[in-house]
Design a protein around this nucleic acid. Sequence first.
DNA 1: CTGATTTTGGTACTTTAGTATGAAGGGTTT
DNA 2: AAACCCTTCATACTAAAGTACCAAAATCAG
Lengths: 153, 153
Amino acid sequence: MQRLVLKPLIWYGLVLALLLIFMRLIEYRYLVKTFSVDIYLGGIALLFTSLGIWIGYQIITRNSRAGNSLNEMALIAGEESLLSDREMEVLLLMAEGLSNREIGERLYISIHTVKTHSTNIFSKLGVKRRTQAISQARTMGIIKAKQESESLK
Amino acid sequence: MQRLVLKPLIWYGLVLALLLIFMRLIEYRYLVKTFSVDIYLGGIALLFTSLGIWIGYQIITRNSRAGNSLNEMALIAGEESLLSDREMEVLLLMAEGLSNREIGERLYISIHTVKTHSTNIFSKLGVKRRTQAISQARTMGIIKAKQESESLK
DNA sequence: CTGATTTTGGTACTTTAGTATGAAGGGTTT
DNA sequence: AAACCCTTCATACTAAAGTACCAAAATCAG
């Protein structure tokens, strides 16, 4: 978890504080007098579950533009992700055997962009061809099994 | 184990018979009187170990030209091998990320031959690109882990 | 020996991949 | 605001991959 982000943390704190205030308002003005304790607890559970999901989503896709939604495992594990999000997508589609044109059609980007990503991938992996990139990514554990690629179909 | 081979079996029998005769000769004319029993047993062990190695090698590379030395698992498992020996070698080197030229240099064949093998591989696997061939071979279990490819290095 | 398959090699051609270089907008960090 | 990275797109070029078609020698089962 390098590159600590301050902004999101502030946002998380603010949202948490607002939620707590909201809970207090509900508690004292309406809920305890109107509904049962079960519903009150259920609401708390739901809200905080949603908050947790949202926080988790934010953590994972924190660097949505500058980071990696697909590298969540690496991020959670505390590793610095070598490839960016888009590069990971391109690499996985590469490993499925798609051509640059097909990758572009799949990701709604031009073939030129795919080539740019390819060149960057090769540079980062220290290889010169896409087949080498696939092999290298497998040995490095970037591409593990079939699940990752299946999830994109 | 389709395609029963008669010739090799006859050869195995002949070699076995010759070896037994040879053992008898050694046993009765020289060894027992001249050397200790240990050396005699050691010779037997060595010879039959060599025979076993040779037989194993022959079984594995039985279809060396018309078959698959690298498809031994599939053959032993009773499956009909889809790809030929050479095609398997080319496919594995492909999966390692080698170019056609590099594959040719590794196998001491011309790049034209590599291309011919490639086209045949793609045709047999029902794909159009080498990256697709690698992916397809993985899903089909033709390429399993890293051991197979490592053994070629 | 014959037929089938493998392996090897080639030419000519089209398609795809990859490189070099530039550019522009957006988001993050400091 | 400046520096940095990501993402997108583009052109022009070279290299590699792939296709179609052919051909010949070697191996092997029957």
